[in-house]
Simulated assay, not measured.
Amino acid sequence: MVRCDDLIGVLSPQFRAVLVERVFTECGVVHIVPRTLGGTASCPDCEFPSSHVHSCYERRLDDSPVSDQPVVIALSVRRLYCDNSLCGRRAFVEQVAGLTFRYGGRTPVSRRVLAVVAVALAGQAGPVW
């Protein structure tokens, strides 16, 4: 028997860095609910590691479709304090490699697909996802 999070990790390697708590479909949309694993994260400015949690919140990300069904990811992330007194940044949000990037509302895979469609259509209307 294969656990759900093992299967998701095989199909989408970017989910290996998170704990997938729930996967369900609703109104034809696949919803994936993961959370980060904890531990330390590095400040994007000074790269100083921190585990000092400021708060947590949910990021909503659009991912590439699975079997013609749209995928929405509700990722719980931590906002951390930068513990380096010489750094100008007070707090930052942890990023998940291959899944998130700063200020992104789509996964990198979904963003690449959208860019390919945009270039291929050269400004013409593309498919609605």
Rank of each mutant, 00 (worst) to 15 (best):
V117P: 00
G39F: 08
A122W: 08
I8K: 00
A41G: 00
R22T: 04
D83K: 02
A125T: 13
Q69N: 10
I32H: 07
V20W: 00
A125C: 08
R111A: 15
P44D: 04
A125R: 09
I32Q: 07
A74H: 15
P49D: 08
H52R: 15
V109H: 09
R3M: 14
L75P: 01
S110W: 01
C46I: 09
E94N: 02
V119Q: 12
F24V: 06
V10W: 06
E21A: 03
V72D: 02
R111F: 11
F15V: 04
S51P: 05
L19A: 06
T40Y: 10
A125H: 07
P44M: 03
T36P: 01
V116F: 03
S51E: 15
L19N: 05
E21L: 07
A74F: 13
R106G: 04
L61Q: 03
A120H: 11
L11D: 01
R35N: 04
P49A: 13
V113G: 03
P49G: 06
W129G: 10
G9Y: 02
V119E: 13
G9W: 05
A41T: 00
Y103D: 08
C56H: 14
R79V: 12
D63L: 08
V2W: 04
A91K: 09
G104Q: 08
V116M: 05
R22N: 09
R59E: 14
R78S: 00
D63F: 06
F15I: 05
D62Y: 09
H31D: 04
C43Q: 01
V128S: 14
V128W: 12
P108V: 02
G38L: 01
G98M: 01
V117Y: 04
M1L: 11
W129K: 10
P127E: 12
E47A: 14
Y103K: 07
S50Y: 06
V33P: 04
R111D: 14
C46T: 10
H31G: 04
V96L: 04
P44L: 03
V66S: 09
V116H: 05
Q95P: 01
L75G: 00
G126S: 13
H52C: 14
R89D: 12
R22F: 01
A97I: 06
P127G: 12
E21H: 02
F92P: 02
S85D: 14
C87L: 10
V10R: 08
P49Q: 08
G105P: 05
V113Y: 02
D6W: 01
S110G: 13
A97G: 02
M1S: 14
A74N: 11
H52S: 15
Q69L: 13
Y57G: 12
P44N: 03
G39K: 05
R106T: 10
H54Y: 15
I73G: 01
A125L: 11
V23G: 01
V66K: 05
M1I: 07
I73M: 10
S51F: 13
A118S: 07
G28R: 07
I73H: 03
Y81F: 15
V116S: 02
R90G: 15
D83P: 00
V20K: 01
L121V: 10
L121C: 10
N84V: 04
R102F: 11
T36S: 04
C27Y: 05
V71T: 12
